[in-house]
Design a binder for these strands. Structure first.
Ligand SMILES: [Mn+2]
Ligand SMILES: [Mn+2]
Ligand SMILES: [Mn+2]
Ligand SMILES: [Mn+2]
Lengths: 222, 222
DNA sequence: CCCATTATTTTGATTAATCAAAATAGCCTA
DNA sequence: TAGGCTATTTTGATTAATCAAAATAATGGG
C-alpha cells in the first residue's frame, strides 16, 4: 500500500518524535531529514494527512497519528530485523548493514520477515542495540543513560550506539565500545568538553562529550 | 543507474529473446509480458533505445544491445542467487522464492550479492535449475531436451523446471519431479496429448504434453 | 490490387515525487 | 508598532511511468 517514499517519511517522523519527546516536528526539520526542499515536505505531509497518517498543523508542524505510528514501527521492525540478519546470518559487518537495510526494509514480504525473526530467535535488539518493535508494534524503550549522564567510576555496559555512520561504527569496533562491552567513565572535563572512558582491559580513551553522548549504557551488576 | 522499471524490461526482453531464438521481440508481446498497454511499451522502448540498451526497429520489434544484455544478465544473476539463498540459507520453500526475488533483485548491493555468492559456494544453478550468470555476465545454457523430446525408456535426470508458478511448483514437489530427481518416460500418446512418466520408485504419472515440456532433462549415466 | 483486420504508434492526460522561486505568515527587535 | 528576518506555503514546472483512445501502418484474403 504505502509507497517507499511514504514509509521513509513516516519512519523519519517517528525517529524524530522520539528526539523531541512527543513535540510535533517542524516542516523545515523534516525537509532536512528527508533531504528535500521545504515545499516538497509540505506537499508530502498534506498527502500523509489526507491518508490520516499524520496530523498536520500548518505553520506549526506535523505529528504521527496512531495509524502512522503503527506503520512507522512496522518499517522500523523490518529495518532492524534485516540489520541483525545481515550481521548474524549473512556475516556482513555492522558498519555496512544500515545502508543495505534502508532499501530492503521496503521490499521484504511479511513471510520472509517472520522467517527471519524466527531464524534469529525473536531478538529484541539489533546490532546497534536499537530495540526491535514486535510484530504487534510494541517497542520497549531502553533507559536513556549515556556516557555523559552516568556516574563516574560506576561499572557499566554499553547497550546502544546512536550513530549509523559506517566510519564511526568501524572506529567503535576498534575502540571496544560495541554494545555489550564493559566500560566505565574514568573522568569528565567540562572545560575540555571531553569524557575519558575505560573499556575492559584496554587503555583509557578520551572522546568529546558529543561523541560520548552517542553511547547508551546501563549499570553493570556483576 | 537503471531504474527498477528499466531493469524489469531488460530482463523480460532477455528471457523472451531466448524463447524466440535471437529474433527481435514484437512490441505487443513485450507489452503483454510487462503487463502494460502497447503504447507504454513503445515509449519505454524508445527511452531504452536512447540509452543504447536496445535496438528498436519501429513496426518490427526490439532487441537488446550488448550493453542491454549485460545489464539484463546482471539482474538475472541477482534474481537467481537470491532465490537459491532464500531456499538454502533462509529456508523458504522453492515455490515462494520467485516472487520475493522479483523485488529483491533490484535493491541488493553488489557487496551483499557477492557475499551471498560466496556463502553458497559460487553455485551454477538456482532452485529451479535455471543457470546463474557469472559476475562477468557469462551463462552456460543447458541442453534443451525435455520430457517431450527425449527417448522413451531412457534413464533421465530432471535438470530444470520452466515455470515459476507457486501452485505448479508445489505440485512438482509432491510428484517427485524436482531438479535432480531420476525419471524416465514410460510412454507417449499423441492422440491423448499426454506423456506418462515414472519418477524413482513412485507410481507412474501422466501429464499433458505442454506440462511435460516444462521439464528439462539430461541422460542419466549411472 | 483493395480493403478490413490487426499491430503499432501517437496524442493527450494523469499520478507521484520532486525543485525553484515567489508569496505569505509569524515573530522579534528596535 | 513597524519593519525585517525566517520559516513555511504556494505556484508553476519537470520527470518517469503509465493509460485511453485516436491515428496510422502493415498484411493477407478475396
Ligand atoms: Mn528506507
Ligand atoms: Mn540499527
Ligand atoms: Mn523485478
Ligand atoms: Mn528461478
Amino acid at each position: 500500500m504505502a509507497s517507499r517514499t511514504i514509509e521513509n517519511y513516516l519512519k523519519q517522523l517517528y525517529l524524530e518524535q522520539q528526539h523531541v519527546a512527543e513535540e510535533s516536528v517542524a516542516m523545515g526539520r523534516l525537509a532536512t531529514l528527508m533531504g528535500v526542499v521545504p515545499g516538497t515536505a509540505t506537499s508530502m505531509v498534506k498527502a500523509l494527512a489526507d491518508s490520516a497518517l499524520v496530523n498536520y498543523e500548518p505553520r506549526t508542524g506535523v505529528k504521527l497519528t496512531a495509524a502512522g505510528e503503527q506503520l512507522a514501527l512496522h518499517v522500523i521492525r523490518r529495518h532492524r530485523l534485516v540489520e541483525l540478519f545481515l550481521v548474524q546470518i549473512v556475516g556482513l559487518d555492522w558498519s555496512e548493514v544500515h545502508q543495505e537495510a534502508e532499501e530492503l526494509e521496503h521490499v521484504i514480504s511479511e513471510k520472509l520477515l517472520e522467517r527471519i525473526d524466527l531464524l534469529l530467535g525473536h531478538p529484541k535488539v539489533d546490532p546497534h542495540g536499537d530495540p526491535i518493535p514486535s510484530a504487534q508494534g510494541q517497542v520497549e524503550e531502553l533507559p536513556p543513560n549515556t556516557l555523559v549522564t552516568c556516574q563516574e567510576g560506576e561499572p557499566l555496559q554499553v547497550t546502544r550506539v546512536l550513530d549509523q555512520d559506517a566510519a564511526f561504527l568501524q572506529w567503535v569496533n576498534q575502540s571496544g565500545l560495541t554494545p555489550g562491552s564493559r566500560v566505565q567513565v574514568v573522568s569528565r572535563n567540562p572545560q575540555a568538553d571531553s569524557v575519558c572512558v575505560q573499556s575492559q582491559d584496554r587503555p583509557a580513551l578520551t572522546l568529546s562529550t558529543s561523541a560520548a553522548a552517542k553511547f547508551l549504557v546501563k549499570p553493570r551488576v556483576a
